[in-house]
Structure formats: structure tokens, C-alpha cells
């Protein structure tokens, strides 16, 4: 489905160049729910922006559904974003002037293919995520959780190969966060969607099949969810995630201490 190989990305600030991604390798399989975690500055958002075709990268390859993204022109990249990818953003990015139902249909409208079938799919998605009662409402009139579930429904309207979610629970309370993550689960289980999520939230990540820990622009560790009863499995996975994150942080602290001691 998604293959990222030896991805390098750097930013230029004045005459200095800062390397943010230093050779990332990862993949997401069909119907897989993968999260990327890591401290600030580890390169999570840059990785997501590269996969989203928002920013160009210098080295490496990104292959989506067998198609290499590097070298595509702007129009072709826009087509990939519209047809092969679905997006969920931290601040929802819904269009204020459109109703919930119309917002869900936007990717189809962009494609120019709003047929009866698309409207039916929008209605099904709203029913699946429990937002059909607010179909005619505007984003300003609904809660944060409802807005994010609308965004999840929008990301699925074109039945993309992969949903990219950038901190989808970052602006939500715990109840709404759970509802949004459960809607991702439903999308994967009932619609066969693949999801690639960047998050700081270990609770949200614990619902995933796999979590990639990123540190200083490289993959630090990959953790797989265990097997067993859903809630127990999730809880145990969250504990393991927290341990791994603690370990990663303590290594940082130790290396800082060594550096200070050596001085």
C-alpha cells in the first residue's frame, strides 16, 4: 500500500541546512492502522507532509498503491491527494460556509463526480459515525468531536487507499477523542480503510495495530499491538508505548548528562 524508503528531507534557514528526516523506511499495509509518535522536532509532521504531497523531499521514494510520488507534477499530485488519500487535520479544516453533508462531499465535488451514489455514501458514512442527525448543520453549530467525525467521513468519501491523520485528537477532550478513534476503527473494520496517524496521544495510538517511534529524523523503534480482548489489549499496548517513550526520553536525558559531565 504505502512504502517509504530512505526518505530524506531538510529545511534551509539562511545559509544553514537542517536535516529533519534522515533516511526513513516504513510501510503501511492494506487495512492497517499505524501511528507515528515521537517528541517535538522528531520529524513526524514533516514525514506526514511529505506523504501528503504537501512538501517536496530531496532523497528517497514514496510509493502509494504501486505509484511512485516523486517526480509527479503539481496537477498529478493534486489528483493523488484527491483520489488516493484522505485527510484528517488537527483543526478539522472544514469549510464554514458548507453544511456537514456538503463538507463530506467536497472531495467528490473537486473531482466533479457528485452522483447519487456519492450522496448515498455520504449518508452511510454519517450514519456509521453517528453524525447523520447534524447533516444540515454548519461547522460552527456542532461540537469538536462532531467536527472531527465529519472530517473522518470526508476523508473516506473517495474511498482512498490511505487516510492520513495529523493529530486528529489534539483539539478534543477524551470522550470526543475516543469517538474519533473509534470512527477510524470502524472505517478500517467496516470499509477496509488504511490509516496513517501522527499523534502525541498514547491513548489514541494504543488503538493502532502498530506504532512507529520517531526520534531525530530516524525510526527509533516499532511496536506491534498484542493479541487478546480488545480493551485489555489496548490498555497493555498503551503501557508498553508509555514505557518505550519513557525509555527514549531517559536515553536523551542520560546522553545530555554525559555531555555535561564530560565538559
Amino acid at each position: 500500500m504505502l512504502y517509504v524508503k530512505n526518505l530524506h528531507k531538510s529545511y534551509q534557514s539562511g545559509s544553514k541546512s537542517y536535516s529533519v528526516l534522515k533516511g526513513i523506511d516504513l510501510s503501511v499495509a492494506k487495512q492497517e492502522f499505524v501511528a507515528v509518535m515521537g517528541p517535538s522536532g522528531s520529524g513526524k509532521s514533516t514525514l506526514l507532509n511529505c506523504i501528503s504531497c504537501y512538501i517536496p523531499f530531496e532523497e528517497g521514494t514514496i510509493t502509494l498503491g504501486g505509484k511512485e510520488l516523486k517526480g509527479l507534477d503539481k496537477n498529478a499530485l493534486a489528483k493523488v491527494r484527491n483520489e488516493k488519500l484522505g485527510f484528517v487535520f488537527q483543526d478539522f479544516m472544514l469549510l464554514d460556509g458548507l453544511t456537514v453533508r456538503e463538507n463530506i462531499l467536497v472531495p467528490r465535488i473537486i473531482q466533479g463526480k457528485v452522483e447519487r451514489e456519492a450522496e448515498k455514501l455520504a449518508d452511510q458514512l454519517m450514519a456509521l459515525f453517528g453524525i447523520n442527525h447534524i447533516a444540515g448543520k454548519y461547522p460552527a453549530d456542532i461540537s469538536g468531536g462532531e467536527r472531527q467525525r465529519t472530517a473522518v467521513a470526508r476523508s473516506l468519501i473517495n474511498q482512498p487507499l490511505l487516510i492520513l491523520a495529523d493529530e486528529p485528537t489534539g483539539n478534543l477532550d477524551s470522550k470526543s477523542s475516543r469517538a474519533v478513534i473509534e470512527s477510524f476503527e470502524s472505517a478500517r473494520n467496516k470499509l477496509g480503510a488504511s490509516i496513517f496517524m501522527v499523534t502525541h496521544d498514547s491513548f489514541a495510538a494504543s488503538f493502532c495495530d502498530r506504532v512507529i517511534l520517531l526520534k531525530d529524523g530516524v525510526v527509533y523503534d516499532t511496536l506491534e499491538a498484542g493479541v487478546g480482548h480488545r480493551e485489555e489489549k489496548r490498555s497493555a499496548f498503551q503501557d508498553r508505548l508509555l514505557d518505550a517513550i519513557r525509555k527514549m526520553s531517559s536515553l536523551d536525558a542520560e546522553s545530555e548528562k554525559d555531555t555535561a559531565g564530560g565538559m
Binding site: S52, Y54, K74, N75, A78, K79, V80, R81, N82, E83, L85, F87, F89, M93, L94, L95, V106, P107, I110, Q111, R154
Partner: peptide, 16 residues
């Protein structure tokens, strides 16, 4: 810009 950015992020090309 927010509106344009959202539409572009969702796959609308500048040409469109």
C-alpha cells in the same frame, strides 16, 4: 487562504 488551503489539501489543483 484557509479555504483555498483546505481545498488544495483535499486535492483541488491550483488550475481547478
Amino acid at each position: 487562504a484557509r479555504q483555498l488551503g483546505t481545498l488544495m489539501a483535499l486535492g483541488a489543483s491550483g488550475k481547478r
